[in-house]
Amino acid sequence: MTTGNPGPTSGPVRSEFADDAEMTELVQMFVDELPERISQLNEAWNSADCQRLEHIAHQLKGASAGYGFSVVGEAAAQLEESVRQAEDNLSAATRQFDELVDLCRRATM
């Protein structure tokens, strides 16, 4: 769905399970925790803690799709990969970092 199509670059990113009444509460919990994730990401980024950054990205990659946010999961996978390749030069991963943070901010029920 998202391949080749960057999708809208602003506006809310809705969970694919937004219409699944059973999932609502669970997805909402996940969304509610995203600001905490964002601040963890920022913290790791600002202190150039590659390991931590890679780990948070890895967790987001594993969980996001399960809550209906596969675009977030894909962005997280890209950040994880680019941090791994960037080694100590984090600036090479700036675009991926910004994109993930942006998507996390826009994620909503």
Partner: peptide, 14 residues
């Protein structure tokens, strides 16, 4: 699994 999100998701789905 160290990720609470995964615990919650699996607990619900299963």
């Amino acid at each position: 699994d160290d990720s609470p999100s995964i615990h919650r998701l699996l607990g619900f789905k299963l």
